[in-house]
């Protein structure tokens, strides 16, 4: 009984982390139509940067914010210098983002070495709280809280603000949006920075749970892919629901069928593809 409760709570925490990772991926994919294969590398690089900031003496949350800001800046540079020139060339975008992810992964290996590194959770959250009959680490609850907070802010931004309205206009009809004076290219840079920053933040948040190691990027990227295929690209609600589904499948699959956990993880994605290719919350098929 206790094991199931613990697994369920772990799954929710994992879902929270996945949302931080895949919200940006989904927005970049859905709004800018860019398959950003660098996203897993953003997550990993963010985590490593967080480690370095902590080593320099920054407290956990400050390190997470600094890592997020650095990743946002790196994302902005990549978008401005490289992806900007490749609008609507999917093959080129795939190559460049994949190439960058290889480079980032190899550079991380060079600077931070091949051994797994741990990030200590902030002191106040290192305690466990009794909950539903198990002693549960408070940090994991905090991770879920942060993810839900991020969801609320993103949703309000896109659905309720002027900036969000401009983003939606730029996506629906970029030419018309430009005519009425919206600087669509700047909006895309903002989205890309936001996505990269969120991934970096998620990387630091994930550190105490997943630890940081070479290959973290290629472990996380497929998870983000599943989330987006499940939830539907460009949909924040889809990313949130998809993240929790994947979080549950990941933890329960590993506990119950460790050998085929990976297959179980992908099964719902296959079913969604066959039954509802645009994803659970995606808009009707756009080719």
């Amino acid at each position: 009984m206790n094991l199931w409760v613990l697994l369920a709570i772990n799954s929710i925490a994992m879902g929270g982390l996945l949302f931080l990772l895949s919200a940006g991926f989904s927005l970049i994919f859905g709004l800018m139509k860019i398959p950003n294969l660098t996203h897993g590398a953003f997550f990993m690089l963010g985590a490593y940067l967080g480690i370095s900031f902590i080593r320099l003496g920054a407290p956990f949350w400050l390190a997470a914010i600094l890592a997020a800001l650095t990743m946002a800046a790196i994302g902005g540079i990549i978008e401005r210098l490289l992806l900007r020139r490749l609008a609507n060339q999917h093959q080129a975008q795939v190559l460049v983002t994949l190439g960058l992810s290889f480079m980032i992964a190899d550079l991380c290996l060079m600077f931070w070495g091949g051994d797994p590194l741990a990030i200590q959770a902030p002191e106040a959250l290192r305690v466990t709280v009794p909950m539903l009959g198990v002693r549960f680490p408070l940090y994991r609850l905090a991770a879920v809280l942060v993810a839900v907070l991020a969801f609320a802010i993103l949703w309000l931004m896109i659905d309720r603000t002027r900036l969000g309205a401009m983003i939606r206009a730029g996506v629906d009809d970029p030419a018309m949006a430009r005519v009425v004076g919206i600087r669509v290219s700047r909006l895309f840079t903002i989205i890309f920075c936001l996505g990269a920053g969120l991934a970096g933040f998620g990387g630091v948040m994930g550190g105490p749970i997943l630890s940081v190691y070479p290959g973290l990027d290629t472990d996380m990227l497929p998870l983000a892919l599943i989330v987006v295929i499940l939830g539907g690209s460009g949909s924040l609600v889809g990313a949130l629901v998809g993240s929790f589904i994947v979080g549950f499948l990941y933890n329960f699959g590993q506990a119950m069928f460790p050998e085929i956990a990976y297959v179980i993880l992908f099964l719902p994605m296959l079913i969604v593809l066959v039954v509802r290719p645009q994803g659970l919350f995606g808009k009707a098929a756009a080719s």
Partner: peptide, 10 residues
């Protein structure tokens, strides 16, 4: 090798 491979892609 991965660094070189990535750079070639770009």
């Amino acid at each position: 090798w991965n660094l070189v491979l990535g750079a070639i892609f770009v």
